[in-house]
């Protein structure tokens, strides 16, 4: 198969959803354009932004950091060491090597030192690991960004992640989640920093192919805590659809973004009507740590409190 763009070199990546196939050089052009278009479409980033890129050691976040640097953004990487024996150490090593090869050093938050390593925090708080992980990560993403002068937090969520999340939100009619699902979450004053997902137009396979062809050494093993993650079930279902009907994933998510306003007007759940519209209401401050929150105490402090008094299951 020849590259559909240059029509000279052999194709290395075939993309049925785009009716296309590219050689490595042309694929880099394609991928870069997709990310640039994703950023432009919703004004995710401005040239003067200081971008905090949240890196896990996996393909998506390292590819995101790599391409944002290539596009000329002022970036630093933040690694949250989850305290998962073996896995977290290997992830940290990959990130350190990646950063060093680009003259950078990641900012590291060690959850063992913070008293909330994920496996122990989940046991003590009697919550699911992925839920605890989400709470802790969101807290530190914002705290590090706010205290170190970053204007925006960027995460490596890709098209597959967002389509799977959308499918889950639709299946359970999570109206408030649907309302907030977007590649751009504006900063809301009160210390909440803007959050963006610049890879929302590119698939997981495209991101992995870009990482592989660029020689980015990422962690290929899956987080041992996420084996039963429901997002994997939604991804599996969407993969089946994608295989039979290429482009389904993209049409689902991009269609949602285009028709979101109209669609949400059809939903009449009290959940949606009661949810504060994004950006319309400023958060208060946590009574314990001072972080922005819509409750009296932020989710992270409530978790820490549970971890402190919780008995191991």
């Amino acid at each position: 198969m020849k590259c559909k763009r240059c029509r000279k070199a052999a194709a290395a990546v075939d993309l049925p959803s785009h009716h296309s196939a590219f050689c490595p050089d042309c694929f880099f052009v394609f991928f870069r354009r997709q990310v640039e278009e994703g950023i432009r479409k919703f004004s995710l980033l401005e040239p003067r932004d200081r971008v905090l890129v949240c890196v896990s050691g996996g393909k998506d976040s390292l590819v995101l950091w790599d391409i944002l640097m290539e596009l000329g953004y002022d970036t630093e990487g933040l690694y949250i060491d989850l305290g998962i024996e073996g896995y977290s150490d290997r992830s940290g090593e990959k990130i350190a090597a990646f950063a060093a090869s680009r003259g950078k050093e990641p900012i590291v938050v060690d959850l063992r030192r913070e008293g909330v390593p994920i496996p122990e925090a989940a046991k003590r708080s009697r919550k699911e690991e992925c839920s605890v992980c989400g709470t802790v990560k969101r807290y530190f993403f914002n705290r590090v960004a706010a205290t170190r002068g970053f204007t925006v937090v960027a995460t490596g969520h890709n098209l597959d992640d967002e389509a799977a999340r959308l499918l889950g939100n639709l299946l359970h009619w999570h109206g408030d989640h649907l309302e907030r699902q977007h590649p751009l979450l504006p900063g809301e004053g009160g210390g909440l920093v803007r959050k963006v997902k610049p890879l929302w137009r590119v698939s997981e396979m495209e991101t992995a192919a870009y990482g592989f062809l660029k020689g980015i050494d990422y962690v290929t093993e899956e987080c041992p805590m996420s084996e039963d993650a429901t997002s994997l079930v939604y991804k599996e279902a969407l993969s089946l659809l994608e295989e039979k009907m290429p482009g389904t994933r993209s049409r689902l998510y991009m269609g949602f973004l285009t028709k979101k306003g109209t669609f949400l007007n059809f939903l009449t759940s009290a959940e949606i009507n009661e949810a504060p519209p994004s950006g319309a209401e400023h958060p208060g401050t946590c009574a314990v740590c001072g972080a922005p929150t819509y409750a009296e105490t932020c989710g992270f402090c409530r978790l820490k409190e549970k971890v402190g008094r919780g008995a191991v299951r």
Partner: peptide, 29 residues
């Protein structure tokens, strides 16, 4: 699907005696 530093497209032919790696790209959580 990779072979050393090469990515293989789905229509490519792999010969007897060759080795290929299948790398999952799906991440959860």
């Amino acid at each position: 699907v990779t072979q050393g530093t090469r990515l293989l497209t789905k229509d490519q032919r792999v010969e007897d005696g060759e080795t290929v790696d299948i790398i999952s790209v799906v991440s959860g959580g």
